[in-house]
Nucleic acid binder design. Structure first.
Length: 636
DNA sequence: TTTAGGG
DNA sequence: CCCTAAA
């Protein structure tokens, strides 16, 4: 390449941190494995089945305790329990938690342990007839048949795998890079890919989606009832789909629930309110299960303590271990008897959260957000992979914990909390699982101090009426829910409060604020495409950029691109240490700065044709080392 | 509908 | 990412 021109602008000013790229990426990122592997999620209930599976899978599992019933199960559970006990501090509202009744429930619950497993194989969730291998992104989108073949031709230059993108090794050719929505990102499963694939033609994209989303909130909800798209890691559309399902499910379950678990509800409610959400995880991999704790870790332990339910799947080494390094663990709480999760280490924390959340949501009803705790610290960076974060088989998962936080996750519903997972429902109607009608934001108001600010923030918005949600959202449910709520009320003042608060939120959120799109971090490839497009078109022409490089990436709107550019510019200016998420090659960041400087100076905005040609900065390897010293050059 | 920015 | 004012 020829170094023709120098970019004067800006560069001098910018101090490109020469700090060597922190290890972030280096961290043990194992093979980037197919993301796909982890994507499948199937719910299977029944402790019995679980047991069987466990047995089959491997006997090797050190800790067998396949059974979760009281302590018996886990060898180590003992420890756990004790710890838990220590930690457990009843919050004001928690009193109920410990009631004997509760315990009973918990115990009983364990029997119906559910098992969730993410299997590489497919989302064939067991029997779910739905197995959508190809969930359509948007519910409204044509329910295409599955996967259209993806045309590779369009994806020019995009290295298929992200890892290959070494710092400076981007294709230097100016081929237009178009991102056909392929998510090379580890974040998404193939489902997404599939989704995007067919999308080739249309670009109604986001906008359309949004609109739909909004609409959805209101009427569509009711109307679009029965699709069953069960997509676990689905991104955007997924939620919508879920909602629909939720509804369905709701109805379905609700019934049973009511029947079967009335008592529980009360508890749930209270517990939930309190932060029952606690979930603990145990690594199935190497580490024997342990209870996590952590600052907030109390949740996890708490729940355990409260319920005293030992891990069901303790030492079970995952059956599928061979696949790749998958991180496997199980989660339990009294509300979630058992949740068995397997995720490749290459999965990101974000996907892990999603996975857990989906599972939990399905069981609890949504309206919650999952937080990941590692050694007591919240892992906020959703983009890092598990292995990067330190969550791997090798490392102990001991310190892995999850928190349930009231989140935007909309929980649709109704006043009443949902339910504990009904074995039946899960098993039988997998499709519904995901869609649980979310329970009112369950965790709302967690009085517990432990919960910490983060978690419960939203919880308290007394919004409108509690009832509305019910009526509006769940047609069918209405009655029941109402009933339930009534039932609940009597329980205690606290509950009442909780109810009032809780329902409102979900409802408001959901109906008013459409579902927030799931976060989909830009992959390096996307960034590359964006940078290139901006280099060529300049800033201020987002729509063109969108069409040029992201036409097929329906989930990226021009607004997204604009926002991304904004963040890229920012990212490029800060030190590598301050950057988060998947590291963007310095080379790209340099180009970002160069392009940013260039275009800002050249008010390029309106000038349509400005083709800076190949505004390419060739940085030797300089950037990494030298700061401003190395002046980026542009090759035309 | 797009841009441009703040949140 | 979302929300919006402007254009």
């Amino acid at each position: 390449m020829v170094f023709k021109k120098r970019l004067d602008y800006g560069f001098n000013t910018f101090n490109v941190p020469n700090v060597p790229r922190a290890p972030r990426s280096n961290r043990r990122c194992r093979s980037k494995q197919s993301v796909e592997d982890s994507q499948i999620c199937a719910f299977e209930l029944l402790a019995s089945l679980a047991r069987k599976l466990l047995q089959e899978s491997e006997s090797s599992a050190s800790s067998n305790a396949s059974e979760g019933h009281n302590g018996a199960a886990a060898s180590e559970s003992t420890t756990e329990n004790s710890d838990i006990v220590k930690e457990f501090k009843p919050a004001k509202g928690d009193r109920n938690l410990c009631s004997p009744l509760l315990e009973d429930l918990c115990v009983g619950k364990s029997e119906n342990g559910f098992k969730q497993e993410r299997d590489a194989k497919g989302l064939d969730i067991g029997k779910s007839g739905i197995a959508n291998t190809c969930p359509s992104k948007d519910p409204f989108e044509s329910p295409m048949t599955c996967p259209a073949p993806l045309n590779s031709k369009r994806d020019v230059n995009l290295p298929s795998r992200r890892d290959p993108i070494p710092n400076a090794s981007f294709p230097r050719h100016r081929n237009n890079i178009k991102l056909v929505s392929r998510d090379d990102d580890e974040n998404f499963s193939r489902f997404n890919r599939l989704n995007y694939r067919f999308k080739t033609s249309r670009r109604p994209t986001r906008i359309g989606e949004r609109r739909i989303r909004k609409l959805l909130t209101s009427k569509y909800w009711k109307v679009a009832p029965k699709l069953k798209d069960f997509e676990h890691s689905k991104a955007d559309g997924g939620m919508k789909a879920q909602y629909r399902k939720r509804k369905t499910y709701y109805n379905y379950d609700r019934y049973q629930y009511d029947t079967l678990y009335k008592k529980r509800k009360f508890f749930d409610r209270s517990s939930i309110v309190t932060s029952d959400g606690g979930i603990s995880s145990e690594s199935v991999c190497n580490s024997p299960e342990k209870v996590v704790d952590g600052d907030k870790g109390s949740y996890a332990s708490m729940s355990h303590g409260v319920c005293g339910i030992p891990p069901l799947l303790t030492g079970n080494k995952a059956s599928h271990q061979s696949k790749d390094s998958h991180v496997k663990f199980s989660i339990k709480s009294f509300r979630i008897p058992e949740l068995y999760i397997e995720v490749p280490e290459s999965a990101t924390v974000g996907s892990l959260k999603r996975t857990v959340m989906e599972a939990v949501t399905a069981l609890l009803g949504g309206g919650i957000r999952v937080g990941v705790l590692l050694q007591g610290k919240k892992v906020r960076d959703d983009n890092r992979t598990l292995s990067q974060t330190g969550i791997s088989c090798e490392d102990n998962l001991d310190s892995l914990g999850f928190t349930l936080e009231p989140g935007p996750a909309k929980a649709p519903p109704p006043v009443c909390s949902e339910e504990p997972p009904l074995p039946i429902s899960c098993d039988i109607a997998p499709q519904h699982l995901t869609s649980f009608p979310a329970t009112p934001v369950v965790d709302t108001e967690i009085p517990d101090a432990t919960s910490g600010p983060l978690l419960l923030t939203n919880s308290v918005h007394p919004v409108d009426t509690n009832h509305e949600p019910v009526t509006s959202q769940t047609d069918v449910l209405t009655d029941q829910s109402l009933l339930e709520s009534r039932a609940i009320v009597p329980v205690s003042a606290m509950n009442v409060e909780a109810l009032a608060v809780i329902p409102a939120i979900p409802k408001v959120r959901k109906s008013e604020l459409a579902q927030r799109r799931t976060r989909r971090p830009f992959s390096v490839l996307e960034v590359e495409a964006l940078v290139q497009a901006v280099e060529e078109l300049g800033t201020g022409r987002w729509r063109d950029i969108k069409l040029r490089a992201f036409e097929n990436a329906d989930h990226r709107t021009y607004v997204d691109l604009k926002d991304k550019w904004k963040t890229l510019v920012h990212t490029a200016k800060i030190s590598p240490q301050q950057r988060r998420g998947e590291p963007v090659p310095q080379e790209l960041l340099d180009r970002v700065l160069a392009a940013h400087a260039y275009w800002s100076q050249h008010q390029a905005k309106q000038q349509g044709k400005h083709q800076p040609g190949t505004l390419r900065i060739t940085d030797g390897e300089s950037d990494r080392n030298g700061v401003a010293t190395t002046v980026p050059t542009v090759s035309v």
